[in-house]
Simulated assay, not measured.
Amino acid sequence: MRLLHTLAELATLGRPVHVAIGVFDGVHLGHQRVIREAVAGDGVAVVLTFDPHPMRVLAPDKAPPLLTSTPHKLALMESLGPDAVLLLPFTREFADMLPETFLQQLAAPAHCLRRICVGARFHFGHNRTGNARLMERLAPRLGYTVTEIPAVATPDGETISSSAIRQHILHGRLDRATAMLGRPFSLLGTVEPGDHRGRSLGFPTANLNLHNEVLPPDGVYAGRVGHRPAVVNIGLRPTFQHATPRRLIEVHILDFSGDLYGQDLEVALIQKLRGELKFPSADALQQQIRADIALARQLLG
């Protein structure tokens, strides 16, 4: 998958271009349907998205916490099979651009622009005045067609959106988030050195410096790193005294030994095992960790 950074680079693709446009935070089932629509076209499939999240520029104090960092989002997009991702910098100048101007600039280098695919709630341009209706009005002159994907709902009728997924995760409803994402919610982070507390207890952990910003409630979770089962602790570790407690994400990968420092690790959270507890001693904590691992094995198979 090629990574492009300017509209002008679309001219290098040559063949008819089918472009899916959106913010795509989380790459949930609705996003996936938009992207797959472009991928199914008879030409080059391009996903056009933005960095940073538009709200970081338009209203920083109201910007939502991210479900996926940009690298995580790109990896999830790549799994859907596009030929390229066009990652445009989202700036105040870009936000103030008239939607008609953006469409003209999109169509000009992509002289083979065949189709634009968007979700039903997609808006763009100055004051968010651009939408699928405007795209359709300009389509005959600019030479493309428009495919608007209606909102997607879960089997029980809840509309899928990044906002809804954030709320489900923040309130610990991982099953609802999974239903909307089409996969378990996952954390992506870089493994960094810790205080080796887990190793001293007999359960070495990978400590994650997170890339995404949404976390479920503190506690212990059964998860997976690739195909390997794992136990994940999210919280302040109240059993141990800290001058300045901070929220940590510690991952114990079952039946694994190796050096992961500096590597990016994606951890899928499958099910919460228990809340965070303060134990009277390190021995009591060890006993509970053994029980957590046994339960995780039972749940994950």
Results as ranks from 00 to 15, higher is better:
residue 227 H to G: 13
residue 176 R to P: 00
residue 245 P to M: 05
residue 238 P to D: 08
residue 280 P to G: 15
residue 199 R to Q: 15
residue 110 A to Y: 07
residue 19 V to K: 05
residue 173 R to S: 08
residue 115 R to H: 11
residue 253 I to F: 09
residue 114 R to L: 10
residue 61 D to L: 07
residue 35 I to E: 02
residue 196 H to D: 12
residue 136 E to L: 12
residue 172 G to T: 01
residue 245 P to F: 08
residue 54 P to L: 09
residue 99 P to V: 03
residue 148 E to S: 06
residue 134 L to F: 07
residue 73 K to T: 08
residue 89 P to S: 11
residue 110 A to K: 11
residue 208 L to D: 05
residue 168 H to E: 15
residue 133 R to H: 06
residue 229 P to F: 01
residue 129 T to I: 06
residue 33 R to Y: 06
residue 94 F to H: 03
residue 241 Q to C: 13
residue 262 G to D: 04
residue 278 K to A: 13
residue 184 P to E: 12
residue 141 R to M: 13
residue 2 R to Y: 07
residue 225 V to L: 04
residue 32 Q to H: 06
residue 53 H to N: 04
residue 86 L to T: 05
residue 216 P to W: 00
residue 94 F to V: 01
residue 148 E to L: 06
residue 51 D to V: 01
residue 268 A to E: 14
residue 219 G to L: 06
residue 143 G to R: 05
residue 293 I to W: 03
residue 15 R to S: 14
residue 277 L to F: 12
residue 18 H to E: 00
residue 24 F to S: 00
residue 236 L to H: 13
residue 261 Y to T: 01
residue 254 L to F: 05
residue 111 H to M: 11
residue 222 A to Q: 06
residue 162 S to H: 04
residue 180 M to C: 14
residue 131 N to Q: 06
residue 34 V to T: 07
residue 202 G to Q: 10
residue 231 V to F: 03
residue 236 L to R: 11
residue 2 R to A: 09
residue 122 F to H: 13
residue 145 T to K: 11
residue 285 L to R: 04
residue 237 R to I: 07
residue 300 L to F: 09
residue 180 M to D: 05
residue 146 V to L: 05
residue 188 L to D: 02
residue 175 D to Q: 10
residue 116 I to F: 03
residue 74 L to P: 03
residue 251 V to F: 00
residue 105 Q to Y: 09
residue 14 G to R: 01
residue 108 A to E: 15
residue 191 V to A: 00
residue 300 L to W: 04
residue 71 P to V: 03
residue 220 V to C: 01
residue 76 L to H: 00
residue 268 A to Y: 07
residue 117 C to G: 09
residue 118 V to G: 08
residue 121 R to Y: 11
residue 11 A to N: 05
residue 194 G to A: 11
residue 89 P to H: 04
residue 12 T to Q: 13
residue 241 Q to L: 14
residue 291 A to D: 10
residue 217 P to T: 05
residue 238 P to T: 02
residue 62 K to V: 02
residue 266 E to Q: 15
residue 280 P to E: 15
residue 276 E to T: 12
residue 147 T to V: 13
residue 264 D to P: 00
residue 123 H to R: 14
residue 101 T to S: 14
residue 159 T to R: 12
residue 255 D to E: 13
residue 108 A to I: 06
residue 233 N to D: 10
residue 184 P to N: 11
residue 238 P to K: 08
residue 74 L to H: 01
residue 163 S to T: 15
residue 164 A to S: 13
residue 9 E to M: 09
residue 251 V to M: 04
residue 257 S to A: 14
residue 170 L to I: 08
residue 220 V to K: 03
residue 231 V to C: 10
residue 283 D to W: 12
residue 265 L to E: 00
residue 235 G to C: 10
residue 182 G to W: 09
residue 158 E to A: 15
residue 103 L to V: 12
residue 244 T to C: 09
residue 37 E to N: 08
residue 173 R to N: 09
residue 159 T to M: 14
residue 137 R to P: 02
residue 191 V to R: 00
residue 159 T to H: 12
residue 120 A to P: 06
residue 93 E to N: 13
